[in-house]
């Protein structure tokens, strides 16, 4: 799944880069990282709940 996620991230990075040409790259990177961290956390919580539930 790591490879798939890397490919997804690479494609998403390319799109982000394309859409934020005139914006500050560090800020954009911050946003991306924040978004992905939230997603990871949510996913982690969901997995944990599923494990406890089962």
């Amino acid at each position: 799944m790591g490879l798939y996620r890397s490919i997804c991230y690479s494609v998403e990075d390319a799109f982000v880069k394309m859409m934020t040409r005139k914006k500050d790259p560090s800020m954009v990177r911050e946003k991306v990282m924040t978004y992905r961290s939230e997603k990871e956390n949510k996913k982690y919580v969901k997995k944990s709940k599923n494990k406890i539930g089962s």
């Binding site: 990075d13 982000v16 914006k23």
Partner: peptide
């Protein structure tokens, strides 16, 4: 898949 990647990228941007 590409549409999803675009959607995510847009959200992040």
């Amino acid at each position: 898949w590409f549409a999803r990647r675009f959607y995510v990228a847009r959200k992040m941007a």
